[in-house]
Amino acid sequence: MKWKKWALNLLWAALAVLFISPLAIIVINSLKTFQEILLQPAQLPEKLQWGNYVEVYYTTNLPVVFLNTVVIIVVSVAGVIVTASMIGYILSRTKTWLSGALLVLILLSMMVPFQTIMIPIVRVTQIFGMRDKAFALIPIYIGMSGAMAVLLYHGFVKGIPMELEESARMDGCCGLNLYWRIVFPLLKPVTTTVTVLYVLQFWNDITLPLVLLTHKDNTTIALSQLIFYRELVSSRWNLLLAAGVISSIPILIFYLLMQKRIMAGVMEGAVKG
């Protein structure tokens, strides 16, 4: 029985290695010269070309792009949490035809593909003078992709008993004050789920920046990948791969730190969504 267990473990280990090997191949090749990539595809690099990474770092304006992305994500996620939790809460606590209708209206955006609003979004941002401004992404992200968070908060509030709010109301606490002091802390499990799911989504979103941002110095990590690709493919694979690796590192670190929460969030999102 024991050897059977070992054989099985070995099989899984082999499968895991095979599964992850494409990423290893990419990392190895990102440390070669372009010549080596073409002529010695199966070998390890003769000398590790860290210079690829240095060159990518400087030529692609990576620090600015990275900072852009982080600011956009932090503010957008905070915005989603604040606005979606408030409306999710009030729609859940109010039982009128209006609250029901509003919820259905909001869920509509979870079904309509981005292509439908892609062209008008460009027009709207032009009207407001927000085209090509990276920070214009923030309100658009909140508006067009906040619906899932609204749904999650709405569902969670339904399960919270009213007593706590009522007793707080007796003590004269009401409105926004009551919400932020008493209710919002209770929503923490959803807030965690919303945070991890939206960080991943915004970090990797390429479609919105693609249609809004046209200057390559003023972009997000996700879009920068496509820009590098268009500039470098077939001519400088070593740099392109280095760019791919370097831009994946922050989100992989986030994944390693938060994987338990991320997986719990996926389970939660799939059940509700």
């Binding site: 409306i87 009030i90 609003i117 658009i140 508006g143 609204v150 409105g175």
Partner: peptide
């Protein structure tokens, strides 16, 4: 007033960046 206060921040952005663009589309 409370309902309005809680719903309006999200609804503004939802209208501006989803509903209106959809109708324009």
């Amino acid at each position: 007033w409370n309902f309005f206060l809680f719903a309006i921040p999200f609804l503004i952005m939802y209208t501006m960046f989803f509903l209106v663009p959809m109708v324009m589309g």
